[in-house]
Design a protein around this nucleic acid. Structure first.
Lengths: 290, 290
DNA sequence: AATCATTCGTGCAATAATGCACGAGTGATT
DNA sequence: AATCACTCGTGCATTATTGCACGAATGATT
């Protein structure tokens, strides 16, 4: 019988296109990957990858089993979640993910409290770009800004997000208003067109806190969720008295259904939910300085 | 990430009920199984088995993932078959299964020929009781006596099986005819009731060759597929001139769909099919001695 | 009650897998 | 053409896993 774990190596190489990157993803040395793939091919008398100078390329035999390997991975993840779902200890690791600004400007101190309450729970925080896959256990609990989370994630909606248009007192008047936009906004966004006759994009950013900094530096005005500027509450950054309809995005504290009984996850999730509810007014834009 | 191979150990213990038997099934030492289960439990903080004096008993946590583990096993088997399906070498192992009497009294010499033709192909023959699971790769090619094989097995129907009623010349006349029956026949079988007024079960057997031996020894008469007594062609065992309708069972040479392109499997299967077709008249009862 | 056949856990030695460090090959850049 | 950055394979030392042999515990049989 084939070692079931071999398919994990196979998938990593197939998805990363080379042994080195696969090894990094698997957290092992590249030679281990190289040797296990070679052994797998040997054992089955099938060539799975063509060794090209730039890396490994799937053969037709590999293509043939690739889809199945993905299904296998999904099943393994499911089992992993279910097992974790049975863990009733108030100790061990929890992987958390959230937008970094929420951590840095809203929750840091709360985390200090939690650490004191539950010293045996090891929190791993991931605030990197991109959403973590909770089904793959890349994270156990997520704080997400989203209109509606997928079915397999459960949790509480803390608040509906209110946006505002913010500006620094440093910003000088001019006939064309400089806008701070998002990377994916190719032209002047709608909110600017509606409220300003003349507007142009001054800079594009890919991060909310970067946007805030740009506003504060007087580079331009921006539409931001109120919670960030209002929490920081820097006197030079003011919200303009322009009404923006309530967003349909909410702040959610989420985890996978399969983890609903995992005690430490429950504990941490409840804690986060409670603390965020205290900050509800910030998310709803009731703390703005005009 | 959990070692996917751990679930293989989990399943073996769950299905065998104790570490020792699981180890035998996995072809490893019992201490390996014991330690891997312990490590799996440790890693996930979940108790999977209760250690009772007679072995290991699944906890509710184990029950929870058992079904998923089975699905995982099925996926692994599927991948294993697909990989094997890509093997185009005329060397390596082939696992064969068939009723032992077919091997011993019909095909032995043909196997000698095959071995000569393909010395690099290693045949593993399994003639034990019970059907092997071709989906689980317990066997690659099967010769089966069956009315209709399942969809996922493909192959050729060699012949339709003809049965006859056989008797030894040694058997003495009496007013009640002694019948040799199968284990699962609780009362005198239909064929006997139809053709004989007075019949009783003299002995029950669970194997065709055993049935033949019983007939030869004069213990009674029996309904057997013609191929066995006719191939052996012992003068003391005669077929009675009683017509029995053609059975709807056939002789099939089968393998899993996924192995249809595996060269050595194809080669061996074709060989077996050809040789069995030569013996078609035996299966159809045209070689009987009355 | 004593023996026997099971089960399983554990220390120790043999075996297998892994990481590390190096060198070779390829392609892009200077 | 030379350098750099990136691939990968391989020998060797280290580490992890496994098998073996033993003893303890339980339950059945004598």
């Amino acid at each position: 019988m084939i070692d079931w774990d071999d398919i994990r190596f196979f998938l990593a190489v197939a998805q990363n296109g080379n042994v080195t990157a696969a090894a990094r993803a698997l957290n092992v040395n590249h030679s281990t990957v190289s040797r296990r793939i070679a052994a797998l091919e040997e054992k089955h008398g099938v060539r799975l990858f063509e060794r090209i100078p730039s890396g490994y390329e799937m053969t037709s035999a590999a293509e043939d089993i690739y889809q199945l390997a993905l299904e296998l991975e999904a099943k393994n993840q499911q089992i992993s979640r279910r097992l974790f779902g049975q863990d009733s200890r108030l100790q061990g690791e929890i992987n958390l993910t959230m937008p970094h600004d929420i951590f840095e400007y809203s929750l840091v101190n709360d985390f200090a409290d939690f650490k004191e309450q539950q010293p045996k729970i090891q929190l791993n925080l991931c605030v990197g770009q991109g959403l973590k896959n909770l089904a793959a256990r890349e994270a156990d609990i997520a704080i997400r800004l989203t209109p509606a989370p997928p079915d397999y994630l459960i949790g509480k909606k803390i608040a509906q997000i209110q946006h505002g248009i913010y500006q620094s007192i440093k910003l000088e008047k001019s006939n064309s208003i400089p806008i701070i936009a998002w990377q994916n906004e190719t032209q002047v966004p709608d909110w600017a067109k509606i409220h300003f006759e003349n507007a142009h994009i001054a800079i594009r950013v890919d991060d909310l806190y970067a946007m805030y900094c740009a506003v504060k530096a007087g580079i331009g005005i921006a539409r931001m969720p109120c919670y960030l500027p209002d929490t920081i509450a820097n006197e030079s950054v003011k919200r303009l008295p322009i009404n923006i309809p309530l967003s349909n995005w909410g702040v959610w504290v989420l985890s996978h259904v399969d983890l609903r009984h995992t005690r430490r996850v429950r504990c941490c999730k409840d804690f986060l939910t409670e603390r965020l509810i205290h900050k509800k007014t910030y998310f709803e834009g009731h703390r703005s300085h005009y």
